Simulated scan of single mutants.
Amino acid sequence: MLGLSDDIRAFLFDLDGVLTQTAKVHAAAWKSTFDAFLRSESDRTGEQFVPFDPVVDYDTHVDGRPRLDGTRAFLRSRGFDLPEGTDADPPGARTVHGISSAKNDTVLAMIREQGVLPYDGSVAYVRRLRALGLPAAVVSSSANCRDVLRAAGIEELFDVVVDGIVAKREGLPGKPAPDTYLAAARALGVEPVHAAVFEDALAGVASGRAGGFGAVVGVDRTGQADELRRDGATVVVTDLAELIPGEEGA
Rank of each mutant, 00 (worst) to 15 (best):
Y119D: 09
V116Q: 05
R209Q: 15
V193G: 14
P178K: 04
A136D: 01
F158A: 04
G218V: 03
A215P: 05
C145G: 01
T106M: 04
D200I: 09
A206R: 13
R230P: 00
R229P: 03
T106W: 00
F198L: 11
V148Q: 07
G212F: 13
A201Q: 08
V160G: 00
C145E: 04
D226H: 12
G214F: 12
A131Q: 14
L132V: 00
G133S: 10
D220K: 06
D147G: 15
R169K: 13
L108S: 12
G189F: 13
V190F: 02
P176S: 04
A206P: 05
P135G: 10
P178H: 05
F198T: 04
L157K: 03
L182F: 06
K168N: 08
G115H: 11
D179A: 15
A196M: 10
S142A: 15
P135N: 10
G208D: 09
G121C: 09
V235N: 07
R130E: 09
V193C: 07
A206M: 10
I154D: 03
R230E: 15
V123L: 04
S122N: 06
V116W: 01
L188H: 11
R146W: 01
F198D: 03
G189M: 13
T106Q: 11
L117C: 09
R128D: 11
D120M: 00
V148Y: 02
V236R: 09
V235R: 13
Y125K: 04
A185H: 06
R186W: 08
R130Q: 15
A184G: 11
G212D: 12
A196F: 11
A124K: 12
A167Y: 00
L117D: 15
A167E: 02
R186M: 10
L108W: 01
V123Q: 01
A131Y: 02
R230Q: 14
L134P: 07
P118K: 05
A185F: 06
D220N: 14
I165G: 08
G218C: 06
L182T: 05
E156Q: 13
L129V: 09
I165W: 00
A215E: 11
V193L: 12
L172W: 01
L134R: 15
R128H: 13
N144A: 12
N144G: 06
E191C: 05
R150Y: 01
D231S: 12
A183V: 11
G115P: 04
T180Q: 10
A233P: 09
V216H: 10
V216R: 07
D163F: 01
G189E: 12
T106L: 05
A187E: 14
E170S: 02
G115L: 07
